[in-house]
């Protein structure tokens, strides 16, 4: 029992990590897109919890609001809109390249893991001092992030807003019924 209490933080992390990985596996393997979307939702929430564990409370909130609340709903809308019915394995996956793709993923993962584990990254806990301060004053994480976002990162922040605007315009253009997309064969040389 003492062990459990002493290592509560670690056990909680591993539990959440396991759930995150499970969700990710679900996204990749579940055939029905709706199920995959639900697995993705679960992953998002777990990642938000991991954010809180690393003292990124504001980001955790953003994660839940934007991802789980906004993007996820968008996905579900589209899934409902386009009537996906590929429930057979050969419809859901590119079986012919799957082995090679998995091999590639594992290979890259192994190489990167080797880099992480053999690298010079010192083990040890971090600190939270700067994550909650503005200058010398201790404040909440949200306030600190906001402060940094509107001072040092003001220009990138504005640029990113332009990116969002462009994306919005792009989405509208693509989604328009009379979009200037020609049908197959029209205007396109075979």
């Amino acid at each position: 029992m003492g062990f459990l209490i002493e290592n509560f933080g670690a056990i909680f992390f591993f539990l959440v990590a396991a759930l995150t990985v499970a969700g990710a596996v679900g996204v990749v393997t579940l055939r029905n897109p709706v199920h995959a979307a639900l697995a993705l939702l679960e992953t998002f929430v777990m990642v938000a919890i991991l954010f809180i564990l690393r003292h990124a409370e504001f980001l955790a909130a953003v994660q839940v609001l934007v991802y789980a609340g906004g993007i996820m709903v968008l996905y579900l809308f589209v899934i409902m809109l386009v009537k996906v019915k590929d429930l057979r394995a050969e419809d859901a996956f590119l079986l012919n390249i799957a082995p090679l793709a998995v091999l590639g993923g594992v290979l890259l993962g192994a190489l990167l893991a080797a880099g992480i584990l053999l690298g010079t990254m010192a083990a040890g806990d971090g600190a939270v001092a700067a994550l909650q301060t503005i200058g010398d004053e201790t404040v909440g994480n949200t306030e600190a992030v906001g402060w940094l976002l509107f001072t040092k990162f003001l220009v990138p922040f504005e640029v990113v807003s332009v990116v969002l605007l462009v994306a919005m315009i792009g989405a509208i253009v693509f989604g328009r019924r009379d979009a200037a997309l020609s049908g197959p064969g029209e205007g396109v040389e075979p």
Binding site: I97, L100, G104, L107, L111
Partner: peptide
């Protein structure tokens, strides 16, 4: 022929292997 022009995921796969080789 699936991996020829127009097959997005084929490109992605080539990129993954390319990244792996570069890393190696």
């Amino acid at each position: 022929r699936r991996l020829q022009v127009g097959f997005t995921q084929g490109y992605a796969m080539v990129m993954v292997f390319g990244a792996a080789v570069l890393l190696g």
